[in-house]
Design a protein around this nucleic acid. Structure first.
Length: 256
DNA sequence: ATGCCCCCGTCCCGGGGA
């Protein structure tokens, strides 16, 4: 079972790339973030035409997450629980085969300090509670997506340049480590303990050409899912395409 | 110190992204 996660920075702008990816990347499940469109306007037919199922949780202009799969998708949660006033579409979760899989778009949090950073930290506390509930189910759980967290200095090209940023501040990283310490494994880091593997390169300043990247898209696996972990890797190819997203997919292979 | 680049929207600028 191959699960891929990709922040596409608009599903409409990236439709051809995503359909090609479904056809060619040998993934069974594709988790998307930053759809930037409503469920009504999601290009469902393009995926129906190639035999893929889609569940989306979108909103106008901003955010939006989806789960795509060749297999049946049974939705288990739409929206992150814990705040009835939160209208941002950043969490969707489903059962696919024997896995519980969530597509996550964690808030950016900049500028920092400020209300957006407060929202990010509060959102991470709510994610912790959901992750705690899920781990207590004692089933294989995959929490994946754009976490907007640089976990360690090795995960960015210049730690000094990021030290005061909402993606790298100690409070942000501490909350990410708390998630891991619940019992979730950072799959990429488990497979590649010491090497740099970036998932995002800014559109500006020639960041892609200079490999000035950061690792902010992650797969967190429950103990039952970690037992199935075969491989985890970044697929850099889509970042080099014309009109690319600024993120590239992460792939995680799990045994059946 | 700020913008660079890219996406969206009753749209040619401004908000948001990271």
């Amino acid at each position: 079972m191959r699960v891929a996660s990709w922040n596409v920075n608009s599903i409409k702008a990236r439709l051809d790339h995503v359909v090609d990816y479904c056809n060619n990347a040998s993934a069974d499940v594709l988790l998307l973030q930053e759809l930037k469109t409503t469920d009504d306007n999601f290009p469902m037919q393009s995926f129906a035409d190639i035999g893929w199922n889609v569940v989306s949780h979108g909103q106008k202009t901003y955010n939006g997450v989806a789960i795509l799969s060749k297999h049946d998708i049974e939705v288990t949660q739409i929206g992150l629980p814990g705040d009835d006033t939160d209208e941002q579409a950043r969490y969707i979760e489903a059962n696919i085969n024997e896995l519980r899989i969530a597509s996550i778009y964690l808030p950016n949090g900049n500028p920092c300090p400020g209300p957006k950073y407060d929202y990010k930290l509060a959102w991470m506390d709510r994610l912790y509670k959901r992750a705690e509930y899920l781990i207590n189910l004692e089933i294989p759980v995959v929490l994946a997506g754009d976490f907007n967290v640089i976990p360690q200095p090795i995960d960015c090209y210049d730690a000094k340049a990021w030290q005061d940023d909402a993606l790298f501040r100690q409070e942000t990283r501490s909350k990410f480590f708390s998630l891991c310490n619940l019992g979730y494994t950072d799959a990429l880091r488990q497979i590649h303990p010491t090497s740099a593997h970036y998932t995002f390169w800014d559109y500006q300043r020639g960041a892609w050409q200079k490999d000035n990247g950061i690792r902010i898209d992650h797969f967190l696996l429950s103990p039952e899912a970690t037992n199935k972990l075969l491989n985890c890797q970044v697929d850099k190819n889509p970042r080099g395409l014309e009109r690319a997203s600024d993120h590239t997919p992460v792939l995680c292979d799990l045994s059946e």
